[in-house]
Computed example of a mutant assay.
Amino acid sequence: MGSMMKQVPLDQKTAAWISYQRMRARLTERIGRELARVGLSEADFEVLSALTDAPGASVRAFALRCGLEWEKSRLSHQLRRMEARGLITREECVEDNRGSVISITDAGQELLAEAQVYYDQAVRRYVTDILTMEQIEALGTIAETVLSRLEEPSTP
């Protein structure tokens, strides 16, 4: 299939990649600024969102780490900070004393609900409201194509 695709000149590929990198960095910065309005970082938002998506708004730390695709130390530091701020609780897992169960608190749910409004507005303002339906479909197709490649075992 790869040989059937039209080859794009290297300079065009490079320009597209540079534009993507700039877009990603700017979107991350803008969305981060929106979330900061309610006192959340992007990492806080990711953790709280994952917890609200879980049954009972709680999940084992290992499953959370795998779902977020974070390193163990990053998650541990993040959870410690969020627990100190009263956004989450950590309890020992009754089935396995080595693990812990992470739950979102009422304060975490309230802050997430407030942040979600700003997040959704930012996504609409900077992405979905300015793209045509064809561009949105292309963006989805591109994302799924790249994600499927990233799911494959990596080769050196």
Rank of each mutant, 00 (worst) to 15 (best):
E114C: 08
K72G: 06
R33Y: 07
L48T: 00
P153H: 10
G2C: 13
M82I: 05
G140Y: 10
L79P: 00
E134W: 02
A61F: 08
G86F: 04
T132L: 06
R124N: 10
G140A: 07
W17T: 14
I31A: 02
L112F: 02
Y20C: 14
R149A: 14
T155H: 14
G32Y: 00
L64N: 01
T28N: 08
A138E: 14
M23K: 11
V8D: 04
T28C: 05
R74L: 13
A122T: 07
S148V: 05
L131I: 02
R85S: 09
L139H: 09
L111V: 07
M5W: 10
R24F: 12
A50T: 02
I88D: 00
L139S: 11
E114W: 07
V94D: 08
D120G: 03
S103E: 07
G140W: 08
W17S: 15
R30W: 05
A43F: 05
R33L: 10
L150C: 14
I142V: 15
M1K: 12
G56Q: 04
G2L: 15
A107V: 10
F62I: 10
L64E: 01
C93H: 07
H77P: 06
R90D: 01
N97C: 06
S154M: 14
L79G: 02
V59H: 00
S100D: 01
N97D: 06
V127S: 03
G2R: 15
V8M: 10
M4W: 11
C66T: 11
V47W: 00
A107Q: 12
A61H: 01
E95L: 03
E151N: 15
G108I: 04
I104N: 02
E92M: 04
I31L: 03
A54P: 02
L64Y: 01
I136M: 15
E29Y: 10
A84K: 14
V94G: 08
V38F: 09
P153S: 09
A25V: 13
Q109L: 06
V94T: 13
G39D: 04
G86S: 07
Q7K: 15
T89H: 08
A25C: 10
M133F: 12
D129I: 04
E42W: 12
L40Q: 01
P153Y: 11
R60D: 05
K72D: 09
R33S: 12
R85I: 07
D120L: 06
P153R: 08
Q12V: 15
